[in-house]
Amino acid sequence: MINVLFLYPDLLNLYGDHGNVSAVEKYVKQCGVKIQIDKTDDIFSADLSKYHMIYLGSGTENSLDRALDLLMPKKDELKAFVEDGKMLLATGSAVELFGKFIETECDKTQAIGILGYSAHRDKKRRILSDCLFESELFEKKTLGFVNRCSEFYDTENPLFKVVFGAGHGKDSKNEGFVYKNFIATTLIGPILVRNPHVLEYVAAKLFEISGDKPKNEIALELQKRAYESAILELEKRASQK
């Protein structure tokens, strides 16, 4: 039985990010393994130790600030969760929450600090870009879109190399962060749906963490067909640039 905690499903769910949780739920079920998804805005009363995975998606800057306020009392527990090898998946702007600081022009706020990176927000400029990344963790390239106003620095432990699109900064060569099973990428939306290889990776890790054995092999045919046609489009586009 796999337990997943979807934190702030209304506050941090700006670009169809909820699709990531649906993807994990559907895939794990199809593999013949039981899965329970809990959604909550109240992390304070949640017992994190019973979960194998926590997920957070994109939010507006104000929503992220609110989420950070709510998360801070659980800072040490969240760190311990990652140190224990559990999966913490942050996509879109939620990545900002788990670095050291979030900075704006006028202030600097302490964040959860799972890794040493910091996010710097520019309220006048948005980084908007179709993206194609590669990573040692996955055989295939990962595609998606970034939509954020923050640039990251002190960016050790990157997850991806940028094939094209925006990285930690607009022109950086790397994107995202990975440490144990903390996986963070600023790609927005249902990236696990759009990138079936990432879904397979996440599910395999979840089976490892929970000790469940998948009973069926799932081909993810539809997803792979959509992925192939989107990759073709993106690569065609990249070669025209």
Binding site: G19, G189, P190, V193, R237
Partner: peptide, 11 residues
């Protein structure tokens, strides 16, 4: 403009 972003379908 060009984009192949389809996340909005999930909304």
């Amino acid at each position: 403009y060009y984009t192949c972003e389809t996340s909005w379908l999930f909304d």
